[in-house]
Design a protein around this nucleic acid. Structure first.
Lengths: 192, 192, 192, 192
DNA sequence: GATGAATGAGTCTTCATTCAT
DNA sequence: GATGAATGAAGACTCATTCAT
């Protein structure tokens, strides 16, 4: 059991190192040797846990994406009104983007560049299924604009990614007021 | 002059090749030799026009960004109303994103990953100064929400980047109706 | 005793795996881990039985060579005539080459390439001493050509190795008639 | 032209180094870096002339084999008697084996191990077509035993490879008398 | 200005071998 | 004895950059 735990720890350390380094330098500019060093293992050890570099990033991506989805819908309950439900989900996403910005920056990079295998990325926004369902209901109830989910996503969810990046790259600090303002904009953009 | 033209042609061919290859494979997965081959020059020739690979991408970035800004504000006239001015600019940006998606995909990749020198990227959204000025006026006139430009940008402009990527990566086709719908969302999200 | 038998079994399994893998891929293209897997033991276990990879192959070579010599001279009896004795030995060698081609292919590969330690290989054809003695007698009796044993070997014994390889690599199938024909050629080439 | 010559020189140096090093250590025990060093070029330069290590060895094999065939049949003339023709070819092969033993050792190693691509090796003994034709004629004339070419080759030609190896590995020196004796054995083994 | 050849530095990956259990 | 995990060392191969022409 101690041994198994040690293995899991190493795998986690590798995933963590991958996220941090890929965030700072990008996939191709991150050598396996650096990942190994940061995780305190030998480069050869990586290959006990992952098939190759691509596999390492793919698995990291899937793992982070799962963390994201789990977090986002943890408190969600389908029985609320559309607006309440949306606010709930939106705020969780915002919280994730702000508090776990290492994760969200990584996800964002994977979504915007060709470093992830097609199959892994093609999954697209389907992992947000409960949100899509909510929108569906909202459209039927006449609360949400009857437009493509892609557009709804582009205007209500994706801006958070931009704000997260802006916060990381420019001299812009997101505070509580900003989040409220952002939510209003999000809701305004999709509400009927 | 024929000679000068030939030089300009080569430089342009190199920039064009850089955009296409970086779009498809990313910065680090794009060897200089491939860029050279696609531009029909020798690898050594690149170094007559650019200091090194980083410089090549930086200059490409600046060039594309200039094209973008030039296009976006070409028809803009400060004397219009805020809403009209915004619609004008927004639609130009949309047009650029859709028709010159090679360019916008490249810009987006540069903005979201660490492939560009800090100085070039740090500039943020300042290159859209006329738009920022317009928003300033809008806030004073009480037409635009009195919130940070970053948020305004995140909700009214950045979604177009997402839609452009969605169009490239998923099975989503942007048509004229979509653009109108998107504009409404954009305006709704920032109007007071 | 059960324990001892288990040990011997493991050692044999390792030798068997070594032969098969080296035959198919060559010495250096055969990782210890593969040998271990095929023998159903851990890589570390190999080092309980052999000092290192070189030692494993050397011992395998010696073991196979012993099998070869034992088989070849098992039915031999020095009291026969030279021709009868030669036929007896030759046919045993042929039988070994054909029926135990895994073994002979391995021996051949060791003899023709630098994968075996010099000392092991330098021994040359001395392991066939009874045959050399028979030839000596044959030369004295005027039945065998009075030429170097190396030449006698090259023309009467070594061709079998070639035929064995030809059978494995090309579309040539050795049948009983071929063997008889081959024996005639062998005898013709060394008889006075 | 000076440049072209330099290129050819480099390629030749690489082929020469490959032969020598593979002869002494085998394919897999010969690092590209060693080949490069012996040929006085950078490891990277090898890849200007050959696709990869396998390609380097394949091309080396084909080149050497061509040298072999060219040499063997250079003086051959189909109009002679079968025996004279055979003696002519045989002695050229012997000469090649003795004088160019680097080449023949290399060929032998390639023929006996799985280091060469199947296609390259599968060609088998077909490159000796004129000799096969001569044998055909000999069989029709009743001068040569009516047996498989593989057996004829095994007994008349292949022994030279063994003698060449014996000379290299053991304390056996081939002199003129040996060659004559060997030829007699060769002829005896295939003549009717 | 233009180039093809050349390369040093660096990358991913493998593998014989060891060691704690 | 037996093992699976771990790794240092090494190897094939790539690529940004230079330089003689």
């Amino acid at each position: 059991m101690a041994k198994l735990q040690k293995s899991i720890d190493k795998r986690n350390a590798l995933i963590k190192a991958t996220i941090e380094l890929v965030n700072n330098s990008g996939f191709h500019a991150t050598p396996m040797s650096k990942i190994a060093k940061m995780a305190n293992v030998s480069p050869a050890t990586i290959y006990l846990y992952f098939e190759n570099k691509q596999d390492l990033v793919n698995q990291t991506y899937l793992e982070v994406k799962t963390k994201y989805t789990d977090f986002v819908f943890k408190t969600y309950d389908e029985s609320t009104s559309v607006k309440t439900g949306f606010e709930l989900i939106w705020k969780r996403i915002a919280e994730f983007n702000i508090n776990e910005c290492e994760y969200s920056f990584f996800l964002n990079q994977c979504n915007n560049t060709p470093i992830i295998d097609e199959p892994s990325r093609k999954e697209g926004i389907r992992h947000l299924q409960p949100l899509l369902d909510l929108w569906e209901r909202g459209k039927k109830e006449g609360v949400i604009k009857p437009i493509s989910d892609y557009i709804l996503y582009a205007y209500s969810i994706n801006p958070l990614s931009y704000l997260m990046i802006a916060q990381k790259q420019y001299e812009f600090q997101l505070n509580k007021t900003h989040v409220e303002e952002a939510f209003l904009s999000a809701w305004d953009s999709i509400k009927r």
